[in-house]
Simulated assay, not measured.
Amino acid sequence: MISMKKHLLLTQLALCAGFALASLSVQAADVQGSAKAGQGKVWLCVGCHAIPDYRADYPFVYKVPMIGGQNAAYIASALSAYKKGERKHPTMRAIAGSLSDQDMADIGEYYAAQTAATPPNPLK
Rank of each mutant, 00 (worst) to 15 (best):
P90E: 15
A20W: 11
V61T: 15
P65I: 04
L9A: 12
H89T: 00
D30L: 12
R55T: 14
F19E: 14
Y58M: 07
F19G: 05
K83V: 04
P52R: 09
K83N: 07
D30T: 03
A116E: 15
L44I: 06
M92P: 02
L9T: 14
Q39L: 09
P120H: 15
C48E: 08
A96N: 02
S25Q: 12
A105K: 13
G68C: 03
K36G: 11
H49R: 04
G40T: 04
D103S: 06
S34D: 10
A78G: 13
A113H: 02
G38V: 12
Y62R: 09
G33W: 03
R87G: 00
P65C: 01
A72E: 08
A28G: 07
V31L: 01
A116C: 10
Q102I: 07
K83Y: 05
W43H: 11
A73L: 11
K5C: 05
T11W: 13
I2F: 12
A73T: 12
N121K: 08
H49I: 01
I67D: 00
M4G: 14
F19H: 11
H89R: 04
G68R: 09
M92H: 02
E86F: 04
P52W: 14
D57H: 10
R55V: 03
G40Q: 06
M4T: 14
L24W: 13
Y62T: 10
M104V: 01
P120A: 05
S77L: 13
G40N: 12
M66K: 15
T115K: 07
S77R: 09
H49W: 05
D101Q: 15
M4R: 15
